[in-house]
């Protein structure tokens, strides 16, 4: 069971309090009604699924209920950092500890 740092509560809490919410930094197109089928498929279905650093969303559903983002190594499952929704995608190198 992972231990996850909620950037809103500023606490390490067990995974049971959280819900993973998929890849981060995929914004819903503002003109969504106008985009092409291909663009829609890219937005809705296509995922990076990286082996290594992954930017992902979590929700502290049984805590403060906020969505936030995390950078995690998908091979070691170690979190490099978590940050609040809306913050810029940080640049992190593999092996770096936040």
């Amino acid at each position: 069971m992972l231990l996850i740092h909620c950037p809103y509560c500023d606490e390490d809490r067990p995974e049971l309090e959280f819900r993973n919410a998929g890849e981060a930094h995929i914004a819903r197109p503002e003109n969504i009604a106008e985009i092409s089928d291909e663009e829609f498929a890219q937005f809705f279905f296509i995922r990076t699924n990286p082996k290594g650093l992954i930017y992902e969303r979590w929700r502290h559903i049984h805590g403060c209920a906020r969505f936030f983002n995390a950078v995690r190594d998908s091979v070691s499952d170690k979190f490099l950092m978590t940050y609040k929704a809306g913050e810029k995608r940080p640049t992190v190198k593999a092996g770096e500890k936040a």
Binding site: M1, R19, V75
Partner: peptide, 13 residues
């Protein structure tokens, strides 16, 4: 498990 992982391990829960 609920998250993407290539670790070939998972949680005890």
């Amino acid at each position: 498990d609920q998250y993407i992982s290539y670790s070939q391990t998972g949680g005890l829960h």
